[in-house]
C-alpha cells in the first residue's frame, strides 16, 4: 500500500457492539497502527505511547486506530489495562483480512506486522511505514506526516 493510493475501505469491530468503517472517517486525518498482538511484554509499548501522545494527535484532529488480529474482548481488556481511549479494531474474522488488504499480514504467523498508515482527509494514503520486526516506530513519523499534510492543505 503506497502513498498516493486510496486506502482500502474496511469495516471492523471496535467493540462487541460497534464497528468502524474507514470511509466513515473521511474529512479528518486517520492514523492506522497495525500491530502484532495485545499485551506485549513491555510497559511502554507502542499503543500506550500513542495514548500518551493523544494531545499531539488531537491538534491535527487525527483519529488514531489500533488494529491487530486479536478479538474484541481481548482488545477491551488490553485497552482497560493500558488506559487506551482510542479504538482498537479487531481484524479477527476473516482472520487478518484488513492487514492483508493493506499488505501487512505476516502469513508465517498470521499476525499483522507493525505498520503505520497516515490517511488524508479523502482517505488517501499520505504516508506509510513498515517497522522492522521488534522495533516500536514511535510517533515522530506520524507527526511529521501530519505536518506535511497540513502544510499541503493550506490553500
Amino acid at each position: 500500500m503506497a502513498a498516493g493510493e486510496p486506502a482500502p475501505d474496511v469495516e471492523l469491530k471496535a467493540s462487541p457492539t460497534q464497528t468502524v468503517r474507514i470511509s466513515g472517517l473521511h474529512g479528518r486525518p486517520v492514523v492506522l497502527a497495525f500491530y502484532p498482538a495485545d499485551f506485549s511484554p513491555v510497559c511502554t509499548d507502542q499503543l500506550s505511547l500513542y495514548q500518551t501522545a493523544a494531545p499531539a494527535f488531537a491538534k491535527y484532529d487525527a483519529q488514531v486506530l489500533g488494529i491487530s488480529t486479536d478479538g474484541v474482548w481481548c482488545h477491551q481488556a488490553f485497552a482497560q489495562q493500558r488506559g487506551l481511549k482510542f479504538p482498537l479494531l479487531a481484524d479477527a474474522w476473516p482472520h487478518g483480512a484488513a492487514a492483508q488488504a493493506y499488505g501487512v499480514l505476516d502469513t508465517d504467523d498470521g499476525l499483522a506486522a507493525r505498520a503505520l498508515f497516515v490517511l488524508d482527509h479523502q482517505g488517501v494514503v499520505a504516508w506509510s511505514y513498515l517497522s522492522p520486526s521488534g522495533v516500536n516506530p514511535g510517533a515522530d513519523g506520524i507527526l511529521a506526516a501530519l505536518d506535511a499534510m497540513t502544510a499541503k492543505a493550506v490553500p
Partner: peptide, 14 residues
C-alpha cells in the same frame, strides 16, 4: 500518483 513523503525517523530534534 504522489511521491511518498520523505520523512526521517529516530532523529533527535532540538
Amino acid at each position: 500518483m504522489r511521491t511518498s513523503l520523505d520523512i526521517q525517523q529516530g532523529q533527535l530534534q532540538m
